[in-house]
Design a protein around this nucleic acid. Structure first.
Ligand SMILES: [Mn+2]
Ligand SMILES: [Mn+2]
Ligand SMILES: [Zn+2]
Ligand SMILES: [Zn+2]
Lengths: 144, 144
DNA sequence: ACCTTATTTGCATCTCATGCGAACTGCCAA
DNA sequence: TTGGCAGTTCGCATGAGATGCAAATAAGGT
């Protein structure tokens, strides 16, 4: 995701308005590596701007995702996670505390893929690859 | 997932009962490669057993998953998918029609993973790796 | 055949997300 | 600076997916 200043320009040039609510969310999302849910962002935003509505948070997240400034993922067990890191990367998810961290993986495009039904091999046009490593984070590894 | 006959034995030995509803679902899931949702299974089951309830389908799927006979995945955009193929494999998902197919990938355990924050490297204990290839299936590639 | 215990089923409830429209406000133009 | 259009906010209604609950039912050991 671009900086709040850049997003301000981008929004205006699209005929979209830059409201205080949106500016706050730009700030909260910039460099945010926590992969927050809409509700989680709403909690943080509410502390700084009492009265902001959850509906507006959802609205702005949807707008940003539509502009390609955010990715969204549906990991199991709950709400969609938003990610301002739109570069190529993958994720490790703690099965205990649901913490999500970015990981960078080499050789993804060189993975050797095969199907049981060979007739379908190579007929699927891969546009993107998402890898999720599940396990226990450092903190949860102790408290098993 | 094991065969209906084997599941019958397994259920009884756990003190669980083998009802007609469960037998039907055992049959519908055995060798099923469509990664169905609970609702999709309910539709098919209803055709063969009018009156079966959606609640029972959910219940049985949850039981089977708890026994390790099924996997479940939350791909984006909708309901959870169930998978009787519990061996090591991955998935390709059509972004157009949501069709899901099994794929087998070599070298997953040899992927070279790195984190931006080197202090956390290797501190995450990976228990499983899920890879999702997104793109267009053969059928949808034509009708773009 | 009986009886205990698990199961089925319908309905209520819950979470997450989106539809909707009245009130509001950014921001451009005059 | 001010007026006004168009985009936005926000609360409430609605929807999808999934689970909680308990009365009625049925499996299966005895
Ligand atoms: Mn990420
Ligand atoms: Mn599969
Ligand atoms: Zn953890
Ligand atoms: Zn398709």
């Amino acid at each position: 995701m671009r900086t709040p200043a850049e997003l301000t320009t981008a929004f205006r040039s699209l005929g979209l308005k830059v409201t205080p609510q949106r500016q706050l969310l730009f700030r909260l999302l910039h460099d945010n590596t926590s992969h927050p849910t809409a509700e989680a962002l709403f909690e943080v935003a509410s502390a700084q701007m009492p009265g902001i509505s959850l509906r507006t948070v959802y609205q702005t997240l949807t707008d940003l995702a539509g502009m390609g400034e955010l990715q969204s993922f549906a990991f199991g067990g709950g709400a969609i996670r938003f990610d301002p890191n739109v570069g190529p990367h993958h994720h490790q998810v703690c099965v205990s505390c649901d913490e999500i961290a970015d990981v960078y993986v080499d050789g993804v495009d060189q993975l050797n893929v095969s199907l049981r039904n060979e007739s379908e091999a190579h007929s699927f046009a891969v546009a993107s690859t998402d890898i999720v490593f599940r396990g226990r984070c450092v903190r949860c590894a102790h408290t098993v």
